[in-house]
Deep mutational scan, measured.
Amino acid sequence: NRRVIAMPSVRKYAREKGVDIRLVQGTGKNGRVLKEDIDAWLAG
Rank of each mutant, 00 (worst) to 15 (best):
M7I: 08
R11M: 04
K17G: 05
N1P: 13
I21E: 02
R3S: 08
R15C: 04
V10H: 02
V24T: 05
V10R: 01
L23Q: 14
K12S: 06
V19Q: 02
V19M: 06
V33M: 04
R22V: 10
D39K: 09
S9Q: 14
G44D: 14
L23N: 11
V33Y: 01
V10D: 04
D39H: 06
W41V: 08
V4Y: 04
V4W: 03
I38N: 00
N30P: 02
D20V: 06
I5R: 07
L23Y: 13
K17C: 04
D20Y: 06
A40N: 12
A6F: 02
R2F: 06
Q25R: 13
E16P: 01
N1S: 09
V24F: 04
D37N: 10
L23E: 11
I5H: 07
K12H: 07
N1D: 15
S9E: 11
R3V: 15
E16D: 11
A6D: 02
M7R: 15
V24A: 05
E16G: 10
V4Q: 05
S9V: 12
K17T: 11
G26N: 04
K35T: 08
I38M: 02
D37S: 02
V33H: 01
N30M: 13
I21R: 01
I38A: 01
D37G: 01
R11G: 02
L34G: 08
L34D: 08
G18D: 11
R2K: 15
V19I: 11
L23W: 10
V33G: 00
G44N: 14
R32F: 07
V4S: 03
V24W: 02
G31R: 09
V24G: 01
I21H: 03
D39A: 06
G44E: 13
Q25S: 13
A6G: 02
P8W: 07
R22N: 11
K29E: 09
K12C: 04
R2E: 15
E36Q: 15
L42N: 06
R32M: 11
K35M: 10
R2P: 12
V24E: 00
R22S: 11
D37Y: 00
V24Y: 01
G26D: 02
M7Y: 15
K17F: 09
K29T: 11
K17L: 12
P8L: 09
S9T: 10
I38S: 00
L42E: 08
Q25I: 13
T27K: 07
R22A: 10
A14R: 00
W41P: 01
W41F: 13
D39V: 09
R32H: 08
Q25F: 14
V10T: 07
G26L: 02
